[in-house]
Write a protein that binds this DNA or RNA. Structure first.
Length: 281
DNA sequence: TTTGAGCGA
């Protein structure tokens, strides 16, 4: 029947209490004061460039890179994509989040060409593939230092580990979410009843960093998706009953477009990487 | 707030 949060509390987000206590002390505090609501004005453009200076030349010439840098296996993938960035989360902030690892090679936040506003995503290059993977596993889905939202990390596009599930995803929409519901919480709430749950996503408002009160749960099995829509409707996640319904496909599921030229690279070397299910959603 | 967010020179 319906799930209640009541006694026993079977669904407890272990994620909430395992913040890797590494990132709570580093001295990023001095620079992470969000500007007082910079409406739409581009911040001074000189601020986000200099952090690269002390990083020992981060512009690896495409061919000859074996000079001062540890040549991380040439074609090793070591760049992560980071999303859900707020307008004030610049290179300095992101770099500071991982500074203690000592493995950040460079950070780049994508900005709008005209407005210079942060587009909401960026790239973090690490010193090795292993470092990148470690950070991905450790931090993805955990709270960011500002405490308002979670890291959303993934392998940089088409570089190997990004999602490319051949299997179709069966998604349900979940509304009426309480403000404290996280991806993980939502996922586990459903997974407790439906083992085919692949992942869940609580939609975050980029301007506020807070949940929009709805999200999505993906199933591997269509039957479970269907059943979840009735079984889980009204079930509790955190403090409120959820509203579960069909999800409108955000886009054509199949036939993603890859940059031309990447096709053969993918088929030749990307396959084993895909099998590992590193993708959270 | 109720149908996402997504790859750079």
């Amino acid at each position: 029947m319906m799930q209640q949060p009541g006694p026993g509390g079977a669904m407890l987000p272990p994620q909430q209490q395992q913040p890797p206590q590494q990132y709570q002390q580093p001295p990023y505090m001095m620079m992470m004061q969000p500007p007082p609501m910079a409406h739409t004005q581009p911040p001074p453009q000189h601020m986000w460039v200099q952090h690269q200076a002390h990083q020992a030349s981060i512009t690896p010439p495409p061919q000859q890179q074996g000079q001062g840098q540890p040549p991380a296996s040439a074609d090793e993938v070591r760049t992560l994509w980071i999303g859900d960035l707020q307008y004030w989360m610049d290179e300095n902030y992101i770099a500071s989040c991982f500074a203690h690892t000592g493995e950040v090679a460079s950070v780049k936040v994508i900005r709008n060409k005209q407005t210079s506003q942060i587009e909401g995503y960026g790239f973090i290059e690490f010193t090795s593939n292993g470092a990148a993977e470690r950070i991905l596993q450790t931090y993805n889905g955990t709270p960011m230092p500002n405490g308002e939202q979670n890291f959303r990390l993934n392998w940089a596009s088409f570089s190997g580990g990004d999602k490319r599930d051949d299997s179709p995803d069966f998604t349900v929409f979940v509304g009426d979410l309480a403000a404290d519901v996280t991806d993980f919480m939502l996922q586990e709430t459903f997974r407790a009843h439906f083992p085919s749950v692949k992942g869940a996503k609580v939609v975050i408002d980029r301007l506020t960093g807070r949940t929009k009160g709805y999200g999505f749960v993906r199933f591997g099995d269509e039957g479970e998706q269907i059943r979840a829509m009735t079984d889980m409707n009204g079930a509790f996640c955190s403090t409120r009953p959820m509203r579960v319904g069909p999800a409108s496909n955000k886009k054509a599921v199949v036939g993603q477009q890859y940059p031309k030229g990447c096709q053969e690279a993918l088929s030749s070397k990307g396959l084993e990487l895909i099998s590992a299910e590193l993708v959270t959603f």
